[in-house]
Amino acid sequence: MAELKVTAIKEGTVIDHIPAGKGLKVIEILHLNRPNGGALLLASNVHSKKLGKKDIVKVEGRFLSEEEVNKIALIAPTATVNIVRDYKVSEKFKVEVPDEITGILRCANPNCVSNHEYTVSKFYVVSREPLKVRCHYCERTMEEDEILRNL
């Protein structure tokens, strides 16, 4: 019944099963809080059978593509995405860690050129389980704990 705690949306995207506490970060990464955008709803610490507690984000008037949503895979690998049209779920998918991560992650190596010069950060996913990425510039690898600290 968790969904009823926030209003149902007519057209837009619902991102469910976000690990509790990560909802705001999801909004930030996907730029959902633009002043001219549609209504944005965040439910935090909602009871979940699967996760114990979870966050839910609903955004009205925007249909997020799989590619866009995959950007949140690093912080919310459990998330599921529902595209809503006329109050009904018209499409449903799970987030997947993409092969390349661009722009949202900072390199943990303080001597990496990407931390000193103007660049768009880029990482290659070396392994998904456990999560490991390699910096396009300095070639250093980062594991899950370092990745989360540098998002």
Partner: peptide
């Protein structure tokens, strides 16, 4: 700095050869 040669190669139209970028 590590990655400096990669950045240089992205910026330059002409070929870039790395002669050592930090400890990379």
């Amino acid at each position: 700095m590590e990655g400096a040669a990669r950045l240089a190669a992205e910026v330059a139209e002409i070929p870039v050869i790395n002669a050592g970028d930090g400890s990379n």
